[in-house]
Simulated assay, not measured.
Amino acid sequence: MVILTPLMMQRTALFVTFGGLVTSLTTTFLPLWKTMNSDLNEVENWFSGLWHACLYTEEVGIQCKAFESIMGLPADLQISRVLMLVSVGTGGFALLLVFPGLEGVGMCVGRPGLKRRLLVLGGVLAWVSGLSTLAPVSLVAYTTVVEFWDEGYPDVMPRWECGEAMFSGWFGGLALVVGGTLFFVAVCMADYDQRSGREPIGRRAEHRTEHYLKTEVL
Rank of each mutant, 00 (worst) to 15 (best):
V137F: 09
S87Y: 01
P154K: 07
G20E: 05
S138K: 02
D39Y: 01
L114H: 13
L213H: 09
H52L: 05
T209G: 00
A53S: 14
C188N: 03
A141F: 04
I3A: 13
D193W: 02
L102Y: 01
L118T: 09
K214L: 08
V86R: 00
S48Y: 10
F67W: 06
S87F: 01
G197V: 11
A66T: 09
F99V: 15
F29M: 11
G19S: 15
G106H: 07
R198M: 12
C54R: 07
I201H: 10
P200G: 06
E58H: 06
S24M: 11
G173Q: 01
E59H: 00
L218K: 07
Y142C: 02
N37D: 10
V16N: 09
G61W: 12
A141H: 10
L121N: 08
A135L: 14
V2R: 15
G20K: 14
V187T: 13
N45P: 00
T35G: 03
E147L: 08
V120D: 00
D150I: 15
R117Q: 05
L125G: 00
V178G: 00
V43L: 08
M84Q: 12
V105C: 08
E206Y: 04
A175S: 04
M84R: 01
L139K: 06
L139A: 11
I201R: 13
T35L: 09
W170N: 00
W127K: 03
V187R: 13
L40I: 05
M189Y: 04
V2G: 07
V82D: 01
R11F: 11
F183I: 07
L125M: 14
F67V: 02
V120K: 02
I70K: 10
S69H: 10
K34H: 11
V187I: 06
R195K: 14
V128L: 15
M107R: 14
D76E: 14
R159P: 06
L125C: 04
V185I: 10
A165H: 03
E103D: 12
F148A: 14
P6I: 09
P31T: 13
D193N: 09
P74S: 12
L131W: 08
T215V: 04
R204C: 06
L77M: 05
C188G: 00
G197S: 12
A135I: 14
V185W: 06
P200H: 03
I62K: 08
T181N: 02
L131S: 13
W127I: 09
P31K: 09
T133C: 15
G72I: 00
D193I: 02
L30N: 08
M8G: 01
W46R: 15
E42S: 14
T143Y: 04
V146I: 13
V2Q: 15
R204D: 09
K65S: 14
I70Q: 08
M157H: 04
